[in-house]
Every structure is written in C-alpha cells, then in structure tokens.
Design a protein around this nucleic acid. Structure first.
Lengths: 119, 119
DNA sequence: TCGGTCTACTACCATATAGTTTAGTATACC
DNA sequence: GGTATACTAAACTATATGGTAGTAGACCGA
C-alpha cells in the first residue's frame, strides 16, 4: 500500500490537531484578523501563535496578505471540505441504525451457524 | 481563551494526520483485522505499524481484543463523528455562494480598518 | 514434550518535526 | 531621530516517527 507522506490531507488533519489552531480558525470564521488579534486570546507568546498560523497556511487553511506592518489573515475553508469528505466515508459506521443492522445480521449468521438446515 | 490541551479532538485529528493510520482505518472499515494483517500492506516494519495502531487506540478509533496470540482490532467510528461535527461548523465557508459574499464583506471591512474615517 | 514458527511486545537508538521562548528586524507614528 | 508596534529568526526542548535487537507466549508437528 502506497502511503503518500506529507499529502495535503496530512497537513490539514495535523493543522486541526492543536487547540490553539482550532481556536484561530474559529476566530477567522468571523472575519479577517491580523496576527496580534489572533495571538492575544491564546495563552502563549506571540511568536508561538505566529508559528501556529504558519502551520495553518501550510495546510492552505489560511491565506495572509501584508498591509504595512500588519499581516491580515483570512480563512480558506476548502481543505476542510476535503477533510470532511474523507471522514464521511465512515459515516455508516457511526450511525446507530447501521450498527443495529450489523448486530441483527451477526445474530442471524450465528443462528445459521449453530442450527444449519439439513439438506 | 482556554485551550484544553490533549483533548479527545486533538488525539482524533492527530491520529488522522498520518497516511498509514488512515490506511489502517480504511482496512478496518471492511472488518476486524489482526495486527499482522494491518501491518503487511504498509511500507514499514511491524513495530512501527503496531505503534500507529496504538495511536489509533489512544484516540478511541480502534478497540483491540486478544484471541490467543492474535490481537484483533475493530473500528470505533464514534470519534470520527465528533471530528466531522467540529469541521461542519465551517461548511458555509466552503460553499461557493457564501465565499463570494464573505469576500465582498471582508473587502469593505478591511478598507474601513486600514483607512479609518476621521471624526 | 520438545523444537520451530508465528504473532506480538518491549527496550533502546537515531532522526525529524513540533512547540515554545529569547533575541532581533522592520514598519509606522510622533 | 526616538519609540512603540507587528512580526521574524535563531535556539532550545519535547514529542513523533521509524529502525534494530531481543523477549514472551501461543500454536503445531514430529
């Protein structure tokens, strides 16, 4: 099985795996913000927050434009759609009805196994 | 802003951030597998693969039961639902109509911010 | 029951990447 | 120029990833 290391999906999921970065995305969902605005609510130094923004940029979840000394960041949600699409392939596994159906099938199968019809 | 480090969501997204682990989940979506079966298609040693399974267990995406010398793994998809639910909050951002509208609004707002009206 | 094999684990090492802090650079404003 | 603001770069620690070597337990055939 070929494992495409450092693919786009890797970067997106990795970007989402840190609460600070998820907090940044939530802030950006409201609208454009500069780095200081993004950093101030986080309990860490400015450079740490800046690096988290960089990770989000690497995952193409954030785009930045420089305006004077400010770096204005904007949400780019398209990669999130890809992440959801990948995860959705397991939807049937977490839906209760399917699980119930699964259980029923298993029950029938094991009955079949225990009491095979004579030919 | 309080950032709940090492939360459940952190572990789930981190677990999904590696192609080998995603490949393992895809295998398990078909049905129960033991570690050898999970490891063999991956281009890495058995211990490396075993560690990936352990990461998936830590995220509660995989449950293991021991049967003789085999460790049988089964998919637990519920945490994937949580991941999707978190991501879905951005759905409107990746849907085209909203993006166009959003872009227009942001353009107006940032103009306002960079060139504040004199009172 | 004994040895061989299969399945999986642990321990340890090397390397790469993540995450954070301290120190430094550039831009705007007075 | 001087100073505050906005951000970057370098450096350092912690964690992740993947390898090798050795161990333990279950199964199987002679």
């Amino acid at each position: 099985m070929v494992v495409d290391r450092s693919s786009r999906l890797d970067r997106v999921f990795h970007a989402l795996a840190h609460p600070a970065r998820r907090a940044i995305l939530r802030q950006l969902s409201v609208g454009e913000r500069n780095l200081s605005e993004l950093a101030s609510p986080l309990q860490m130094t400015f450079p740490a927050a800046s690096k988290h923004v960089r990770v989000l940029e690497g995952a193409r979840l954030v785009r930045r434009r420089v305006a004077g000394r400010q770096h204005l960041c904007r949400l780019q949600a398209a990669p999130l759609r890809d992440a959801v699409l990948w995860t959705e392939q397991f939807r049937r596994h977490w839906e209760a009805r399917f699980q119930a159906l699964d259980a029923l099938l298993e029950e029938l199968k094991s009955e079949e196994r225990l009491r095979p019809r004579r030919s």
